[in-house]
Write a protein that binds this DNA or RNA. Structure first.
Lengths: 120, 120
DNA sequence: CATGGTGTGTAGTAATTACTACACACTTAT
DNA sequence: ATAAGTGTGTAGTAATTACTACACACCATG
């Protein structure tokens, strides 16, 4: 079984992978590009501090080539635009989400595709 | 045009409607059943304080016969179980939500129904 | 006129969130 | 051996969240 990576571990793993053949991926350099203190990033990577706010998570995702929604989820958060979609029409959207809750990923993706394609 | 009701106004309107023919819906009585301070509820209803936490919103919804998802949305929040659904499978669910974003309510409900019915 | 019930005003608070600033120790390259 | 770069330790902070506790003023009723 592959080990479950938490937010900090994922960041470190991704950054280390890049750092291996690119010196621009030192903790300090990444922190600077993202716009946070190196010590803060250090603590986050080691899980000593909780994950940062959405904006900084997005910048980290961009920087490290990770999917922002994925990274936000690892941080225990949900993207602001998705929250807005739910808040605009809470009952219908809630119904939809609770309906697809137990479906396999594949099925959910298929539904999205078919809706977009109008195969419906 | 009907006026846009915010969270506090909605609470007050709903409570007043019940209070009209049921003395158990005074601010104090409702507050007590919900388990919060009357002064706190007063401030919330008048928008002097921001909406309470999810649990108390749910109790208020129950008490006043309102839809919890609706009331949570008016409070600028999203139900915890929905957040969990997204966090469990961030990418597929995000894709679905962004896909249905611009569709009419009716269409979204229809999709939910068809998925449940297996009309697919 | 006091008692019970109504809503509200004032003054707090503990916990959480999202960070900054700076100093320190260690390694490596010149 | 010193300079530059690495990660980390310590010590804060401002803002927000989610409330409590209690006193006050008003109104109606016995």
């Amino acid at each position: 079984m592959s080990k479950e990576l938490d937010f900090g571990e994922t960041l470190r793993a991704r950054r280390m992978a890049q750092a291996k053949d690119n010196p621009a991926f030192s903790l300090r350099k990444v922190a600077e590009r993202v716009g946070i203190e190196p010590s803060y990033l250090s603590k986050i990577e080691r899980g000593e501090q909780p994950p940062p706010g959405e904006e900084n998570i997005r910048r980290l995702a961009e920087e490290l080539g990770e999917n922002p929604d994925m990274l936000l989820a690892l941080a225990g958060k949900v993207a602001g635009d998705l929250l807005a979609i739910i808040r605009e029409r809470p009952t219908v959207v809630a119904e939809l989400l609770r309906t697809i809750r137990r479906m396999p990923d594949k099925r959910v993706s298929e539904i999205s595709r078919q809706i977009r394609d109008g195969d419906w």
